[in-house]
Simulated assay, not measured.
Amino acid sequence: MDDLVPDKSAAEMKDSAAQAPGAVLVFDGKGGVKRMAPGEGAVPFPKGFMLVCGNSKAPEFKVWLKQELGPFNTDTLTVPSTQSRCTMLDDKAILVLRIARPGAKTDDIGRQLVGIWIEKGRVIVASELNIPELLGFGHWEQSHHAPVSPADLVARLSLRASDRIEPLLEHLGDSIDAIEEELMLEQNGDSRAKLAHLRRTLIGFRKLLWPQRDVLNTLEIEDLSFFSARDRARLREASARTARLGDELQALSERAVLIHEQIMDSRAEQMNKSMLVLAAVTVVFTPLTVLSGVFGMNFPIPGADNPHAFWAVVVFLVAVAGLSIWWMRARKWL
């Protein structure tokens, strides 16, 4: 059964955050943000909220999470998961997202787990990623364009995750273009192996993108009291961005299927040509084999004493072979 997490006042949240072993950001709800120093006292945010970020592998942060959320919810946030998901707890929500690590490549995107706890006035993020850096905290301080609500923060986190995926999808598209060019130039080589590896990569990206879209859609439609119409619009925008990347991924998958069919058709055509040549050789040499077998029988053959008989037989066999080839060309078999 889920742990019961008591509702806390803003002052209690601030006092608890001051003891958190991680980065603490305070948002004023109007686009401003500041970092709370360790041990800092009360910070006014009457209409804002607080973000607490910590390393999901750090024992100190796990201890703090258990004190704040309980063991069950802490495990939900920090235990590695293979799927993104959204879990509702009264007027709170737990999100688990999988984000590509910094500097990821298409061959190894290195998915990183991000656990998010959302409640009125506070967001807790447990991840090995540097969340303030991922979200662009330094830019927010200068531009005064920070998130104004917890839902806005989640939407921007999802958009940053999409920003990491988009160049990887472009690289996959370039790889498909290269394979198509090889096929056009009839330089098949290892195109089939490259395509198989590419299709496995596309499946991995699909497992990363589509669940994230479902998480955002679920969070948008849930009846959380502190979500405004603007919050739901921001979540819808982030979900649409993820869905667009998913559509691009689907288009790449369909192109990969078409290329695979083209490779198989090319291989089948090559096989048919080879079989046609073998069949033509068989048709040409079958009558020659019969005639040579007849003349090779162990009994007297007419013309055996004629010195020109051998060349006459050779000319006859050549004529039969030529006639067979002409007949097959006339029927457009060759």
Results as ranks from 00 to 15, higher is better:
165 I>A: 09
279 A>I: 05
119 E>P: 03
299 F>Y: 10
30 K>W: 08
52 V>W: 09
136 G>W: 08
286 T>C: 11
227 F>W: 08
283 V>F: 12
177 D>E: 11
235 L>F: 07
224 L>Y: 05
33 V>R: 03
315 V>W: 03
72 F>D: 12
167 P>Y: 09
157 L>G: 01
139 H>C: 11
162 S>C: 15
198 L>T: 03
11 A>V: 10
139 H>M: 12
31 G>I: 12
42 A>C: 03
32 G>L: 06
285 F>E: 03
250 Q>Y: 15
25 L>E: 06
218 T>K: 15
71 P>N: 04
21 P>L: 08
212 Q>C: 03
15 D>A: 13
103 G>K: 08
193 A>R: 04
30 K>S: 13
33 V>T: 10
211 P>G: 04
293 G>E: 01
15 D>N: 10
245 L>D: 00
210 W>M: 13
153 L>H: 02
228 S>D: 03
210 W>N: 10
193 A>T: 11
201 T>C: 07
248 E>K: 12
103 G>I: 07
303 G>Q: 05
79 V>A: 14
259 I>D: 09
211 P>N: 02
21 P>D: 02
75 D>V: 12
80 P>S: 07
251 A>W: 01
10 A>E: 15
27 F>C: 00
266 S>F: 14
182 E>M: 06
254 E>W: 06
203 I>Q: 04
3 D>I: 03
219 L>I: 00
296 G>Q: 02
266 S>A: 14
21 P>R: 01
208 L>R: 06
131 I>H: 10
3 D>Y: 10
149 S>V: 00
308 H>E: 07
244 R>M: 09
58 A>N: 09
104 A>P: 03
193 A>N: 06
133 E>R: 11
266 S>P: 11
152 D>G: 15
291 L>V: 14
226 F>P: 08
320 V>D: 01
326 W>G: 09
214 D>L: 05
104 A>C: 04
174 D>I: 05
330 A>W: 15
205 F>A: 02
242 T>I: 13
114 V>I: 12
140 W>F: 06
62 K>F: 05
99 I>M: 05
92 K>I: 00
293 G>C: 10
178 A>V: 10
48 G>W: 04
334 L>D: 09
86 C>E: 11
76 T>S: 13
199 R>F: 06
170 E>H: 13
133 E>Q: 14
123 V>Q: 11
143 S>V: 11
168 L>H: 01
162 S>A: 15
